[in-house]
Simulated scan of single mutants.
Amino acid sequence: MNTTPDFGQLAAESRDELLNNVLPFWLKHSLDRECGGYFTCLERDGSVFDTDKFIWLQAREVWLFAMLYNKVEKRPEWLECAIHGAEFLRRFGHDGNYDWYFSLTRDGRPLVEPYNIFSYTFATMAFAQLSIATGNEEYALIAKRTFDRILSKRSNPKGRWNKCVRGTRPMKDFALPMILCNLALEIEALIDPATLDRTIEECLHEVLDVFYRPELGLIVENVAADGELLDTFEGRVINPGHSLEAMWFIMDLGVRLRRPELIDQAVKIALRTIDYGWDKQWGGIFYFLDRLGHPQQQLEWDQKLWWVHIESMITMIKGYRLTGSQECLAWYERLHDYTWSHFKDPEHGEWFGYLDRRGDVLLSLKGGKWKGCFHVPRGLYQCWQILEQCK
């Protein structure tokens, strides 16, 4: 007989982990008091093992602490932390035209050109959220101008740094419309309603009418420029974590637009995706899969990653909260058990990021080139808030 979980206890667990374990880890170890910005390459115990600074990780940490300051509590140390990172980004993160570099040296000298559109998206999120926290008009202007740059680059995000030969096999990928679904709501207060509405509708079309394939019941990562499927490495790849994360973005848009059919479709896609992506032998969600069952080009295809599981937890508990789906609730409980038992570090703060297929820790780092102060604390915050509503 199924029993309803103790939502109050689960909410308190997420809240305590966020406020008393994860956030103190980053506040203690990540702030570079000498050069500004944050260290993100942190060993298990928080010691720094590399001092390069990656723009999207810098921006994500700014956003995270500004968001918590705005939505949880006006803690001065949170606002100070967010401003600390934002000022480093404001001075060094872009080329003067709001083209945001990928990485910098510790003291802010550019290392990698602005080829990565996600440096832009997270800079927009960061400065938009911090402008709300501070009322600083310059921060709001940075967010708006960066958002304009994103829209202008949508058809060719990498610009002159695109390594593909133009015209041979033109493709578009799922990641940008996916993130814009979330970004549109993040910057809603700073852009005109017509631009917001247009951006949301375009993203919904891309996600649900182009990348979602009803014949598969799945979202593909790449399609041809005309929206057709491609029988190539890139065209066959399925990233279950991306798909599942996108579905809670779609649910949020469904709430915002008062369109319950969007929520229902997101839940349907999410349930199909997690069943497809779940490792039936060892548990956890695969990182990449080939939709035709061919060998993957990504050697890390069978690893279990922190963000995939945390984002999936958000999706499933949000799906349950909005629709009452018992299937979503069962998957949330299954994901919770796997994620908390495998990724949480019982000896030091924060969570591990990379497990092998069997669920053993593959890398002991707490932050690096791709993992920073974002998915774990955002996921804990989201789950805490949703679980409170389920009580």
Rank of each mutant, 00 (worst) to 15 (best):
W26L: 01
H29N: 13
H29T: 04
H29Y: 11
H29I: 07
S30H: 06
L31S: 10
R33T: 13
E34K: 15
E34M: 01
G37C: 04
G37S: 05
Y38H: 06
F39W: 08
T40P: 02
T40V: 05
T40C: 09
C41G: 09
E43W: 04
R44K: 15
R44I: 04
R44C: 07
S47M: 01
T51Q: 06
T51C: 12
T51R: 12
I55K: 00
W56H: 09
L57I: 02
A59D: 00
V62G: 04
W63E: 08
L64P: 01
L64Q: 06
L64A: 07
F65N: 05
A66G: 03
M67R: 01
M67T: 15
V72E: 15
E73A: 15
K74I: 06
K74E: 13
R75G: 12
P76L: 07
P76R: 04
E77V: 10
E80R: 15
A82I: 01
H84Q: 07
H84A: 11
G85D: 02
E87S: 12
F88L: 03
L89R: 08
F92N: 14
F92I: 09
G93T: 09
G93F: 09
H94I: 04
G96Q: 11
G96W: 10
G96F: 09
S103L: 08
L104I: 05
L104W: 04
L104Q: 09
L104D: 06
T105L: 12
T105F: 11
R106Q: 13
D107T: 15
D107Y: 03
D107P: 11
G108W: 00
G108V: 08
R109G: 07
R109A: 12
L111Y: 03
V112M: 05
E113V: 09
E113M: 13
P114G: 09
P114Y: 05
Y115L: 07
Y115I: 00
N116R: 08
N116W: 11
I117F: 03
S119C: 11
S119W: 06
Y120V: 00
T121M: 12
F127C: 08
A128R: 10
A128F: 13
L130P: 01
S131I: 01
